[in-house]
Design a protein around this nucleic acid. Structure first.
Lengths: 192, 192
DNA sequence: GTCTATACGGCGATAGAC
DNA sequence: GTCTATCGCCGTATAGAC
C-alpha cells in the first residue's frame, strides 16, 4: 500500500511524524528521530538545520495529508448530512488522537508562529469544508434555516478533537464514538 | 482569595500543578518543580519518592478541584438547559486548556493506569452530571424524548476539550467560543 | 552525503552533612 | 526537614574525517 521511504531526508520526515504524533515536541529527541528513521546522526544534521527545522517539515507533511483527506471526504457525493457524517465516522484510531491536533498541546509549538501555522491552516480547511456542507444542507432544507453554520462547524471539529481526549482518559475508543454519534444525532434533530 | 501555600509539601504540589498544566509530563522536570515551588531539591525528595509520585499528588489535587467545580455548577438552581449552559459558559482561559485533559496527551500518563486514574475519574464525574441534567431536561419536556443522554453528554464534554485544541491552533479563544455556542444552539434546536 | 568523536548542559536521582 | 555535592545518562548539537 504505502511506498517505503526512499532517501534519508524522506525517512527522517516520516520518522519525525510518527514520533511527534506519539510523544509531542518535547518528547521527541533528535537521537530518537535518527534512530527510528534508520539514518545516521550526521546525515540528519546534513539535511536539516536542527530539531525545529525538521519538526516543521514533518508538521507540513502531516498537515498536507490531513487537508487532502478532509477535502476528499467532503468532495464525495451525497447530502450534506451524509458528507458530514462520512467525515465524522471515518476510521480513526481514537486512542492515538490527531497527528495535527497533538502538536498544539506543546507550548513550544503553540508559542511559535511558524511551528503553529500548519495546524492553524489545517483546522481552517476543516472549518471551511464543514461550513460549506452545513450551508448546503441548510439551503436544501436538511437543517433548520437558523442553524449557525460557522459556530456549528467549530462544534463538530471540536467534538472530534475532544473525543480523542476523552478516549485517552478512559483508555477506550468508546467515549469518542459516543461523542461523534451524539453530535450526529443533534444534527439530525436540528432539521426544522 | 486563595490561601498562599504553607509548607514545602504544599508548595511542591501547587508548583507541579502549574507546570503540568503548562508543559505536560515530559516537559516538567524535577528541577523546574523545586525552583518554581521555592523549595530546595533535598526537600522535594524528602516529601516525595520521585517525579511520578509528585505528579500523582498534583494530578489528584487538580482532579479533586475540577470535580468540585463541576458538581457545584450542576447543583445550581435552574432548568436543565440553564445548568448545562452554565457549565459550558463558565469562565475559562481557552488558550491554557484543561489542567486535567492536558495530562492524557502525554503517553507516560496515558500508559500508566495510576497516573491516568484522576483524569478518568474526573471525566466520569462530568459525564454523570451531564447525563443527569439531560435526563432531567428530557423528562421536563425541554429536550426531545428520543435525545440520547449518554451520547449527548459525551458530545458536550468533547466540545469543551476539543474547543481548547482549536483555540490553541489559532492562538485565539474565538474557536472555543464558537464551538460552545454552536453546541448550545444545537441543544436548543433539539427541543421536540 | 554519511560517519564517528566530542562537547556541554540539563534530567532524574542518590548520598551524606547539618 | 533541608542543604550541597555528586552521579550517570540523555538532549542537542558541532567538528572534522571519509
Amino acid at each position: 500500500m504505502t511506498e517505503p521511504p526512499r532517501d534519508a531526508r524522506e525517512r527522517l520526515i516520516e520518522g519525525t511524524r510518527e514520533l511527534l504524533w506519539e510523544r509531542g515536541y518535547v518528547g521527541t529527541s533528535p537521537t530518537a528521530i535518527w534512530r527510528a528513521s534508520g539514518v545516521g546522526q550526521g546525515s540528519m544534521y546534513h539535511h536539516f538545520q536542527g530539531k525545529p527545522d525538521l519538526v516543521l517539515a514533518a508538521e507540513q507533511r502531516s498537515a498536507e495529508q490531513m487537508q487532502r483527506d478532509i477535502r476528499a471526504c467532503f468532495a464525495q457525493e451525497g447530502s450534506a448530512y451524509e458528507r458530514i457524517s462520512a467525515y465524522l465516522l471515518r476510521e480513526r484510531d481514537a486512542l492515538r488522537g490527531c497527528p495535527v491536533g497533538r502538536l498544539v498541546a506543546d507550548p513550544e509549538i503553540a508559542a511559535d508562529g511558524r511551528l503553529r501555522e500548519p495546524a492553524r491552516e489545517t483546522f481552517a480547511v476543516l472549518h471551511e469544508c464543514l461550513v460549506s456542507a452545513l450551508e448546503d444542507g441548510r439551503n436544501a432544507g436538511e437543517f433548520a434555516a437558523d442553524l449557525d453554520a460557522v459556530r456549528t462547524a467549530s462544534t463538530l471539529a471540536a467534538v472530534v478533537q475532544g473525543g480523542y481526549t476523552l478516549a485517552r482518559a478512559e483508555a477506550s475508543a468508546e467515549p469518542y464514538e459516543r461523542a461523534v454519534q451524539g453530535a450526529l444525532a443533534l444534527l439530525r434533530l436540528a432539521d426544522r
